[in-house]
């Protein structure tokens, strides 16, 4: 019982962070599935959503600010794809990746400019930020809400991809880009929808994540971004359930490592996991067989 009480906070934090990572990881896995591009800017879109929230909630009531944040983030994701990735559709993969790194650099510098380099305090969301106690472990309510919300959103997304026309088009494009185009699928629309969904989930993830961490800095998107990419690879890139499970595993493992007192290595663990996975099972847990990874 004592052990449970000591380790429960870490476990809860792990599950919560895992849920937040899952929402970001879906953005990576969908974009990679379709464009074969590591969207380095995705972590910074997540950071930008946090920044929008900070600035909007300063002047607007929360009920108005939250939907506005979601909309602006979606527009941002859409514009990034249109401006920075679309012109390079036929360029080598490396140039698109460099472009993604450039966008990430730009977003970080913009955030630096608007914040003046200071960490911004994230607004307290009523009800979500309240503390509750579970089996004697005190935590914020958001910790409990996150996994539930994540699972609901993922289920909705899965239904969307399975049963709607655009979802079917997405699956087709990720299977074979050229053939899908020949079949009359509007590839550009599909890619835009992918970025819209990815950004929307990243915005929801940022609401939950920053409620937990309470402050946003221009670089706070970098590390979660990389970790979520690792989660996507771990689960098998292109697979949505894989990304979710990968994200939960990474979130929980990271917090257990923190609980053991090895905080310095909680980031390093993620990358060690990535390298092991790529060497042992490059397709990830649920990935389809592909030959060009290793």
């Amino acid at each position: 019982m004592q052990f449970l009480q000591n380790s429960l906070p870490y476990l809860l934090a792990g599950i919560s962070v895992g849920g937040q990572y899952a929402l970001i990881a879906i953005g990576y896995t969908m974009v990679y599935g379709i464009l074969r591009l590591i969207n380095f800017a995705h972590g910074d879109v997540f950071m930008a959503a946090g920044m929008f929230m900070v600035f909007l909630s300063a002047s607007l009531p929360l009920g108005l600010a939250i939907p506005l944040v979601l909309i602006i983030t979606v527009v941002l994701g859409f514009l990034i794809e249109r401006i920075a990735y679309k012109p390079l559709r036929s360029a080598p993969r490396m140039s698109v990746m460099i472009s993604a790194i450039g966008v990430s650099y730009l977003l970080q510098n913009c955030a630096l400019y608007f914040t003046g380099g200071l960490a911004k305090v994230y607004p307290q969301l009523p009800w979500l930020s309240d503390t509750v106690s579970v089996f004697g472990a005190v935590t914020k309510r958001v910790t409990l809400i996150t996994p539930v919300l994540t699972i609901v959103l993922v289920a909705a997304l899965s239904l969307f991809i399975k049963h709607t026309k655009i979802g079917m088009a997405m699956r087709a494009v990720s299977k074979d880009f050229e053939t899908a185009r020949l079949m009359g699928i509007k590839v550009n629309t599909v890619i835009s929808v992918t970025f819209v969904i990815g950004s929307l989930l990243a915005a929801v993830g940022s609401l939950l994540y920053f409620t937990n961490y309470a402050s946003v800095t221009p670089t706070s998107g970098g590390m979660p971004g990389l970790k979520c990419f690792v989660a996507a690879v771990f689960g098998g890139i292109g697979s949505i359930p894989g990304a979710v499970i990968g994200a939960f595993i990474i979130g929980i493992a990271e917090n257990i490592i923190k609980g053991l007192g090895w905080t310095t290595f909680s980031d390093a663990f993620t990358f060690a996991l990535l390298i092991v996975i790529l060497l042992v099972k490059p397709t990830g847990l649920f990935g389809e067989k592909a030959t060009d990874k290793v």
Binding site: L37, I38, R93, L226, F265, A268, F271, L274, I275, K293
Partner: peptide, 21 residues
Amino acid sequence: RLKSDYLAIATLGFAEILRAF
């Protein structure tokens, strides 16, 4: 042994591990 973007992420990861170390 990895290729293109996987190599990029893995080397980036190692750089982060080195920094933590």
